[in-house]
Every structure is written in C-alpha cells, then in structure tokens.
Amino acid sequence: YFQGQLNAMAHQIQEMFPQVPYHLVLQDLQLTRSVEITTDNILEGRI
C-alpha cells in the first residue's frame, strides 16, 4: 500500500467517525490495511 491509498482510506473513515483523531485512524490503518477492520476497531473502542 502506498501512503496516498492509506490517506484516502483514513479520510473515508473520518467521514464516518469525525470524532476520532486522523492520526489515530491512519496509525491503525497502517497495521490493518483495511477500512473494515479499522472501522470495527473504532466501534469496539480499541481506538
């Protein structure tokens, strides 16, 4: 994955969860590489 793709995914998640800091979303995406998994992590309070 290149950074631009991760940034696009992070923006997509931020639209759904504007209360979660962008850098935390991006940090999780770098591990998961998945909008779905990061979204689940937010919903389950891991982020």
Results as ranks from 00 to 15, higher is better:
residue 1 Y to H: 13
residue 1 Y to C: 15
residue 1 Y to I: 14
residue 2 F to L: 15
residue 2 F to N: 15
residue 2 F to I: 13
residue 3 Q to C: 13
residue 3 Q to Y: 04
residue 3 Q to I: 05
residue 3 Q to D: 15
residue 3 Q to R: 07
residue 4 G to R: 10
residue 4 G to E: 15
residue 4 G to D: 15
residue 4 G to N: 10
residue 4 G to Y: 09
residue 5 Q to L: 14
residue 5 Q to Y: 13
residue 5 Q to S: 10
residue 5 Q to C: 14
residue 5 Q to A: 09
residue 5 Q to M: 14
residue 6 L to Q: 03
residue 6 L to S: 03
residue 7 N to G: 09
residue 7 N to F: 13
residue 7 N to A: 14
residue 7 N to K: 13
residue 7 N to R: 10
residue 7 N to P: 09
residue 8 A to I: 11
residue 8 A to H: 09
residue 8 A to S: 09
residue 8 A to L: 11
residue 8 A to R: 07
residue 9 M to W: 14
residue 9 M to L: 11
residue 9 M to C: 09
residue 10 A to G: 04
residue 10 A to P: 00
residue 10 A to Y: 04
residue 11 H to V: 10
residue 11 H to P: 01
residue 11 H to A: 13
residue 11 H to F: 08
residue 11 H to W: 08
residue 11 H to E: 09
residue 12 Q to K: 12
residue 12 Q to N: 07
residue 12 Q to F: 11
residue 12 Q to C: 15
residue 12 Q to E: 09
residue 12 Q to W: 10
residue 12 Q to A: 12
residue 13 I to Q: 00
residue 14 Q to M: 12
residue 14 Q to V: 14
residue 14 Q to L: 13
residue 15 E to T: 11
residue 15 E to L: 13
residue 15 E to S: 11
residue 16 M to E: 06
residue 16 M to W: 09
residue 16 M to G: 05
residue 16 M to D: 05
residue 16 M to T: 06
residue 16 M to Y: 07
residue 16 M to N: 07
residue 16 M to L: 11
residue 17 F to T: 01
residue 17 F to Y: 08
residue 17 F to C: 06
residue 17 F to G: 00
residue 17 F to S: 00
residue 17 F to P: 00
residue 17 F to M: 03
residue 17 F to Q: 01
residue 17 F to K: 02
residue 18 P to Q: 04
residue 18 P to V: 03
residue 19 Q to N: 14
residue 20 V to A: 05
residue 20 V to S: 03
residue 20 V to N: 02
residue 20 V to E: 03
residue 20 V to K: 00
residue 20 V to M: 08
residue 21 P to F: 06
residue 21 P to Y: 06
residue 21 P to V: 06
residue 21 P to Q: 07
residue 21 P to R: 05
residue 22 Y to E: 13
residue 22 Y to G: 12
residue 22 Y to T: 12
residue 22 Y to C: 15
residue 22 Y to W: 09
residue 22 Y to M: 14
residue 22 Y to S: 12
residue 23 H to R: 05
residue 23 H to F: 11
residue 23 H to Y: 14
residue 23 H to C: 15
residue 23 H to V: 07
residue 23 H to D: 15
residue 23 H to I: 09
residue 23 H to L: 09
residue 24 L to M: 10
residue 24 L to C: 14
residue 24 L to P: 06
residue 24 L to D: 13
residue 24 L to S: 07
residue 25 V to A: 05
residue 25 V to K: 00
residue 25 V to E: 02
residue 25 V to T: 03
residue 25 V to M: 04
residue 26 L to G: 00
residue 26 L to R: 03
residue 26 L to V: 10
residue 26 L to K: 03
residue 27 Q to C: 13
residue 27 Q to E: 13
residue 27 Q to F: 09
residue 27 Q to M: 11
residue 27 Q to K: 09
residue 28 D to G: 01
residue 28 D to Q: 02
residue 28 D to K: 00
residue 28 D to I: 06
residue 28 D to H: 02
residue 28 D to V: 05
residue 28 D to R: 03
residue 29 L to G: 02
residue 29 L to A: 00
residue 29 L to W: 02
residue 29 L to M: 03
residue 30 Q to K: 10
residue 30 Q to A: 11
residue 30 Q to E: 13
residue 30 Q to L: 14
residue 30 Q to M: 15
residue 31 L to H: 13
residue 31 L to C: 14
residue 31 L to K: 13
residue 31 L to N: 11
residue 32 T to A: 01
residue 32 T to Y: 04
residue 32 T to Q: 01
residue 32 T to K: 00
residue 32 T to E: 02
residue 33 R to W: 15
residue 33 R to H: 14
residue 33 R to Y: 10
residue 33 R to E: 08
residue 33 R to Q: 15
residue 33 R to D: 06
residue 33 R to C: 15
residue 33 R to P: 02
residue 34 S to C: 05
residue 34 S to T: 02
residue 34 S to D: 07
residue 35 V to D: 02
residue 35 V to H: 04
residue 35 V to G: 04
residue 35 V to S: 06
residue 35 V to K: 08
residue 35 V to N: 02
residue 35 V to I: 14
residue 36 E to T: 09
residue 36 E to F: 08
residue 36 E to L: 10
residue 37 I to P: 01
residue 37 I to R: 11
residue 37 I to C: 09
residue 37 I to V: 11
residue 37 I to S: 07
residue 37 I to N: 06
residue 38 T to Q: 01
residue 38 T to S: 03
residue 38 T to P: 01
residue 39 T to F: 07
residue 39 T to E: 04
residue 39 T to G: 04
residue 39 T to K: 12
residue 39 T to Q: 06
residue 39 T to M: 12
residue 39 T to S: 08
residue 40 D to N: 15
residue 40 D to K: 15
residue 40 D to G: 15
residue 41 N to W: 03
residue 41 N to M: 02
residue 41 N to S: 04
residue 41 N to Y: 03
residue 42 I to G: 01
residue 42 I to P: 00
residue 42 I to C: 05
residue 42 I to A: 02
residue 42 I to Q: 01
residue 42 I to S: 01
residue 42 I to H: 00
residue 42 I to N: 00
residue 42 I to M: 03
residue 43 L to V: 10
residue 43 L to C: 07
residue 43 L to A: 07
residue 43 L to Q: 07
residue 44 E to H: 14
residue 44 E to T: 14
residue 44 E to F: 10
residue 44 E to L: 12
residue 45 G to K: 06
residue 45 G to T: 02
residue 45 G to N: 07
residue 45 G to V: 04
residue 45 G to W: 05
residue 47 I to V: 10
residue 47 I to P: 02
residue 47 I to R: 02
residue 47 I to T: 04
residue 47 I to Q: 02
